[in-house]
């Protein structure tokens, strides 16, 4: 059986600078992978390239998702196929009601997959059920998308979307940034509730702290645009103790 996500020897440039120099990563369904590394190691670049953010030039390598060439797809096609990027900094969209946004996005994905679109009452039922299962207050749904949300609320809104869109691959980009410990725990509880044998997660983080709440199956250390070491969850603890410096020497 082929892997859910297969990144092979990926090389990426931003403007004239190469950020990723031949990165490889294999993720199977049901697995939770953590990608750790110092600032500037290319972690967020990897998440952006997988989601299809413009401005990155892939100069070599490939990304296969469910055996298909992901780099050939537009960002919305990737979303419809089951790729979900939880943003490090979710944007505020004034004037777009959260419910309108959620319904439009869900139905666009369903339409792209050839599934029937949700009627408004069915959609409301679904979104309320997902929000309740993740302990997300209904009040959040009545506002503009992320408008006036605290950092923690924005991350919970990302988790809500994850629950609603039911992606097969979730990439959490620096989910812990800007969150205090309580907000982090609440967001992590939401993520854990969505762990399943049918879904994989890639947790990108700078700090080991997040991994106390979302416990990974595998940990990869990135440095200077490559994965320099992979291991089990104990690797994260080792990093916490010894720092990234040892790996930066290896990558050089």
């Amino acid at each position: 059986m082929s892997a859910l996500l297969e990144v092979r020897n990926l090389q990426v440039r931003v403007e004239e600078r190469e950020i990723l120099h031949g990165l490889s990563l294999t993720v199977n369904k049901g697995e939770v992978h953590a990608i750790m590394g110092p600032n500037g190691s290319g972690k967020s670049t990897l998440s952006h390239v997988i989601a299809g953010k413009p401005g990155y030039e892939v100069t070599g390598g490939e990304i296969l998702f469910k055996g298909e060439d992901l780099l050939e797809m537009s960002p919305d096609e990737r979303a419809a196929k089951g790729v979900f990027l939880a943003f490090q900094y979710p944007v505020e969209i004034p004037g777009v009601a959260t419910m309108t946004f959620l319904r439009t996005a869900l139905n666009a994905q369903r339409k792209a997959r050839g599934e029937s679109e949700y009627s408004t009452p069915d959609f409301l039922k679904k979104v309320r059920a997902v929000a309740a299962s993740l302990n997300i207050p209904q009040e959040m749904l009545r506002r503009g998308v992320n408008v006036g949300f605290s950092g923690g609320e924005k991350k919970r809104n990302e988790v809500l979307q994850m629950g609603l869109f039911e992606p097969s691959l979730c990439i959490l980009d620096e989910m812990d940034s800007g969150l205090d410990i309580d907000a982090l725990r609440i967001a992590a509880d939401g993520v854990n509730a969505l762990r399943s044998s049918e879904r994989a997660m890639v947790v990108i983080t700078h700090y080991q702290r997040l991994l106390n709440y979302i416990v990974p199956d595998f940990v990869h250390v990135m440095s200077k645009g490559r994965v320099v070491k992979s291991g089990g969850k104990e690797l994260a603890l080792e990093l916490e103790e010894k720092g990234y410096a040892q790996f930066e020497e290896q990558a050089a």
Binding site: K53, S74, D76, L85, P90, F101, A105, A108, F165
Partner: peptide, 22 residues
């Protein structure tokens, strides 16, 4: 904003339309 909407499954024109309506 456009990328955020597209990453959630909205095709380019639909993402633009939602932002223009807002």
């Amino acid at each position: 904003l456009l990328f955020y909407l597209r990453a959630r499954g909205l095709p380019e024109k639909e993402a633009q339309a939602l932002l223009i309506q807002a």
